[in-house]
Design a protein around this nucleic acid. Structure first.
Lengths: 213, 213
DNA sequence: TCAAAATGTGAGTAATCCTCACATTTGCAA
DNA sequence: TTGCAAATGTGAGGATTACTCACATTTTGA
């Protein structure tokens, strides 16, 4: 929730270039650094991870750490990049040979399950991608807000579809709402034209789910 | 991306209780503090916001700031809470008198537009809720990853629905993918049972959109 | 009127990130 | 082998910044 010193006011430049390990020895050390960081993130979260602790656990000096990683975020980024590479391979394998609708259903369902299990089981992944990181209290507020808003939707749905299971309506409304927030956040992250398309697509999708049509 | 000192290892306790302004004078000062924080967040983002700067702009001492806000995050939280309160009122008004499917379509569509416009226009809201805040570089990585994964889906969809506009397929796939990530993140934030329901609901919703059924 | 409560202040404390000047090791051409 | 440049290793210290605290001032209410 704030960057430390030294970081000049230049802002997130992804990660200024640092030496990349060319010798066997340094490659092993970098692996140890990443392993140490991973363990610490699993234990306490990336926010609480201290650079000094990473260095100590990896058995290297703080200076060595900064020899290969420009800053703290770069370490988290490196871990995240590995996970994305792995998961892309997995996704590619699952989807490339899909030929019909039934196959897509199968493959998609499995992929979602895998993703879900991964998030449940891997604290590091959870930490790194938890809404692309976040403030605990803010996340709570957001969830509570989303739930409250979903309630208004549930009230409407109960009137429109009195024969549907209320629990299902609840789930649907909550999900639709949360996805709306995700859709809007996505939309503002891309150029305006694509953003507009995404928001429209979300509306169609959500309404199809809500009123079925 | 890291908490400063003093914060003992107790972890996010939402915001330890601080004095709440009871006199007119202090209420006005607290308003000034929030306004200053809001302006600074709009200018540089909440990460770059410095407590000293907030105090200076509000025309109060650093000590006064901490008299009413337990820590830096509490200020952002207070701003976020206001926005959620406002938006809830708006949502409630829009949805309470919906009586039929057509009315829901209208109201929902309008709400989404309002939300979208709000995010586009208000830097503070964008900052506070940008995935519940985040690391720029990580967000980039996530988006790139999501896009790459969506491509695999697009390839499949092009085979299954060769007559649909490719741009639409692209949009759908990207959206579906991003929502899957949102759904999983949501699922792990709630208890297991509800999480499972949400993931299943997402699958149904996504597949209905992808293969239409 | 005046004491207690509320509020205001800002220099100082405690971390923490990151740098840098200098030491050590490795790769490799002569 | 030798020697030298490049790569790598080190950790004390610089630079910031969130947050505290002992004390001053103002407001409240009996």
């Amino acid at each position: 929730m704030d960057e430390r010193t030294a970081a000049k006011p230049d802002q997130a430049v992804i990660g200024s270039p640092r030496r990349s390990p060319s010798q066997q020895r340094s490659r092993e050390r970098v692996e140890r650094m990443l392993a140490a960081a991973s363990a610490l993130i699993a234990e306490q979260g990336s926010d609480a991870m201290r650079m000094g602790e990473v260095a100590e656990r990896a058995g290297v000096s703080i200076g060595s750490l900064y020899q290969f990683f420009p800053d703290k975020r770069a370490i988290v980024w490196a871990l995240a990049e590995r996970y994305t590479a792995e998961s892309q391979a997995c996704i590619s394998a699952a989807l490339t040979d899909v030929r019909d609708a039934e196959g897509l259903k199968q493959a998609f369902s499995e992929l979602v399950d895998i993703y879900y299990q991964l998030f449940l089981a891997e604290p590091v992944i959870r930490d790194v991608w938890s809404g692309t990181q976040a403030d605990k209290a803010l996340r709570e507020l957001e969830l509570a807000d989303s739930r409250a808003n979903a309630e208004f939707l549930v009230a409407v749905l109960k009137r429109l579809r009195p024969d549907t299971d209320p629990l299902e309506l609840e789930t649907t409304a909550f999900l639709v709402w949360q996805m709306g927030e995700a859709a809007v956040r996505l939309a503002i992250s891309v150029d305006r034209e694509e953003g507009d398309r995404l928001v429209e697509a979300y509306k169609r999708m959500a309404l199809r789910e809500l009123v079925g049509a």
